[in-house]
Design a binder for these strands. Structure first.
Length: 211
DNA sequence: CTCTAGATCCTCT
DNA sequence: GAGGATCTAGAGA
């Protein structure tokens, strides 16, 4: 990596075009523990108000307000009571499109990432959206960070763009609505792409005590 | 590899 | 109150 940061214009476009274009580029996060960088191998696009699967579908809330701001910022959210996931906001200020970063290959700071995920194999360090956040040390405090500022704590660096012939797309993972929108993009054959798991609503541990 | 289940709390209705 | 853009461990094949 030579430290070239992707421009804000890169993110200021239709999310379904920005998402596959991100494959092969590098997300990097610097903390006091060190810097960790991951080459993106799998992403998902979310289209805002038109997309029932998007957090922005029902309009702005305190949680999703970053999605409605300018492109090139990070939207971090907390889910399942214990995990964080990160998105890169796309499209003009006022729209609410974003790309969920689902998986990557750790290419720098592997020692720091392994310290954060001691039970993980190297392959699994960032193989999944919550794993990626954990490996990079991303949590609530990083919500809203600008990734287009050279020298910033979190940046997206220009890498080797994925070979277009190897880019695949299919249904998004873990979502209930809009399954027909095939906006999960990944690099075919890359071992760090996460396994596809269809969504199954969790059963709440027994509701009725019957009587 | 597959399947099952538990963890755990924030957010919006 | 219900359920979630998930992960891990354990059992079985």
């Amino acid at each position: 990596m030579d430290g070239a940061v992707l421009s804000r214009e890169f993110f200021d476009g239709p999310v379904e075009e920005v998402a596959p274009a991100l494959l092969g580029h590098v997300i990097s996060h610097r903390t006091p523990e060190g810097e960790v960088a991951a080459r993106l191998t799998e992403v998902e696009a979310y289209a805002g108000p038109l997309d029932p699967a998007s957090h922005a579908y029902r309009g702005p809330t305190p949680r999703n307000e970053v999605m409605f701001g300018p492109p090139g910022h990070v939207y971090v959210y907390f889910t399942y009571g214990m995990h964080f996931c990160m998105n890169l906001v796309c499209g003009p200020d006022g729209t609410s499109m974003a790309v969920l970063l689902r998986a990557g290959e750790i290419i720098a700071g592997e020692d720091v990432a392994r310290a954060r995920r001691p039970r993980s194999t190297v392959r699994d360090l960032a193989r999944g959206p919550a794993r990626l956040c954990q490996a990079l040390g991303v949590a609530r405090e990083q919500n809203g960070l600008d990734v287009c500022a050279p020298g910033g704590a979190m940046t997206v660096l220009r890498g080797e763009p994925a070979d277009p012939a190897l880019i695949r797309n299919g249904p998004r993972t873990g979502v209930n609505g809009a399954k027909e929108i095939p906006w999960r993009f990944w690099i075919e054959g890359d071992p760090t792409v996460s396994p596809y798991r269809p969504h199954v609503p969790r059963q709440r541990r027994k509701i009725t005590t019957e009587g």
